[in-house]
């Protein structure tokens, strides 16, 4: 049997707290951004579903950029370091960020990762977020641009199913277009869906396999 104790009304208080649960992260994100700005470094947050090609895309972009200026990569990976290893083969600074809840990166973790590398020689940092289409949208990290990587292998309705991720993004990459025909997925329709959510959002179709669209992504990132 459950016993309940009722406090009499004069013993009950209602206290206004107005405490934002997202504010602390937002504040740390601002600090990260200020640190990056001071060093003239641009951070790009790469989000998207598991397996959409975030690591592969970052790898291909690093290949193109690393001889022009300093590039570093942060890999958010819940369990393994396989992603980080993949990029480290290119001999650019890599920091693996293991999250505790495996859900999303936060500004605090990114701030710690920023302490681990020298920002002096750097121009661009790619931050690979955890493969998750729901959480990271609310956790700004201090990046100048948020890129969402989706792929045609996620099916024709992936944008409609996961609309939240796109609202705060500056660039959408529709990857694996080399597989579009085989998958029966229309890149034009996916693009239309993105524009229904956010009319001015830039969409670039790519294939990390054939190299299609990678020049365009590179140029877009250099312009942010």
């Amino acid at each position: 049997m459950i016993q309940t104790i009722e406090a009499s009304p004069d013993e009950i208080y209602d206290i206004e707290l107005e405490h934002s649960l997202l504010e602390a992260n937002a504040q740390l994100a601002k600090e990260n951004r200020a640190l990056l700005d001071r060093h003239g470094v641009t951070a790009v947050d790469v989000m998207g579903a598991i397996g959409s090609g975030k690591t592969t895309l970052i790898g291909r972009l690093v290949e193109r950029l690393k001889d022009r200026f300093g590039v570093a990569v942060f890999n958010g990976d819940a369990t393994t370091s396989s992603d980080a290893d993949l990029i480290a083969n290119q001999s650019v600074p890599v920091v693996q960020i293991a999250t505790i809840n495996g859900c999303h990166l936060d500004a605090n973790l990114v701030g710690k990762a920023l302490q681990k590398i020298s920002l002096e020689q750097l121009r661009l940092v790619f931050i690979e977020n955890i493969g998750n289409l729901i959480c990271p949208a609310e956790f700004p990290l201090g990046s100048k641009a948020r890129v969402v990587v989706v792929s045609v292998t996620e099916g024709p309705y992936m944008v409609r199913k996961h609309p939240h991720m796109f609202l705060g993004a500056q660039l959408v990459v529709i990857n694996k277009i080399d597989l579009a025909e085989a998958m029966g997925v229309s890149v034009a329709e996916l693009t239309k869906d993105v524009h229904k959510l956010k009319p001015d959002l830039r969409v670039i179709p790519t294939s990390c396999k054939t190299g299609d669209g990678l020049d365009e992504v590179t140029a877009a990132l250099l312009a942010v």
Binding site: A7, E11, D14, E18, S20, L21, L167, K198, P199
Partner: peptide
């Protein structure tokens, strides 16, 4: 007008208040 908008409200998550009984 069909243009792009910015979020003004509705993207936060906050504790508004706490209701509690005090010690006797």
């Amino acid at each position: 007008c069909g243009g792009a908008v910015e979020i003004a409200e509705g993207n936060d998550c906050a504790i508004k208040s706490i209701r509690f009984a005090v010690e006797d």
